[in-house]
Simulated assay, not measured.
Amino acid sequence: MRTSTQPLNLTYTNNTLKRAERALGCAPFQLNLFTAMKTDSVPLPNIAGETGVKQGYTLKSLSEQRVEKDLLWLIQVGLLRREVDGQGITDSFRLTPLGRQLVAKWKEQGEKLPQPSWWERLVNQFIRWFSLPF
């Protein structure tokens, strides 16, 4: 029987893993953000603006709108989830089991997310564009 402290051991298809890795690598965020999301939820205002740069979550100041848009894409890909409290959905985000798996993998390989090629960036943008709700 699984207790709440035991991690889920889920198996993902190669396509799911490739799509998630590509999306995470193309996002404007640093590994520090995802490492923080592994143990705690991180509120949107802590990621946007100069606060995000000071925390090591981003390399440059990003607007809240840009941060939310990119985080919502990572939710759609299956890497993140939005926190919920007694009032409903919050402005905080946390890793899913898929996200924790990829962050653990990249944490072992070094302190940076791998840089995607121009082709991977193009594919990610293409998939993202066609995945937008109409």
Rank of each mutant, 00 (worst) to 15 (best):
T96C: 11
E83M: 07
F93A: 03
L95Q: 10
K105M: 08
P97V: 06
L74E: 10
L79G: 04
W106P: 00
Q101E: 13
E83Q: 12
D85E: 10
S92Y: 02
S117I: 01
R94E: 14
G110M: 04
V77A: 07
S92R: 13
D85R: 15
W73L: 08
Q101D: 02
G99Q: 13
L80T: 09
L74C: 13
G110R: 09
D91E: 15
Q76H: 15
G86C: 09
P114F: 01
G86D: 10
R82M: 05
E108W: 02
G99E: 10
T90F: 10
Q76L: 09
V77W: 00
R100S: 14
E120G: 00
P116F: 05
G78A: 01
E108G: 04
I89E: 15
T96F: 06
P114E: 07
L79R: 00
R94A: 14
I89T: 09
W106S: 03
P97W: 11
P97Y: 08
W106Q: 01
L95N: 15
V84Y: 10
I89P: 15
F93C: 05
D85F: 11
V103S: 08
P114H: 10
A104S: 15
W119H: 06
L102Q: 04
R81L: 02
S92G: 10
K107L: 02
D85A: 14
L80D: 12
P114V: 02
D91N: 15
G78N: 11
P97M: 08
G78T: 07
L80R: 07
K112G: 00
L79Y: 08
R94D: 05
Q109H: 03
Q115S: 13
V77C: 08
E120W: 05
L102I: 09
G88S: 13
Q115V: 13
P114I: 05
K105G: 00
L79A: 03
Q109S: 10
I89A: 13
P97R: 07
G88C: 13
Q87V: 11
D91M: 03
Q109E: 15
E108F: 05
A104V: 00
L74R: 11
K105F: 06
L102F: 08
I75S: 02
R121T: 07
W73D: 07
K107I: 00
Q87H: 12
P97A: 09
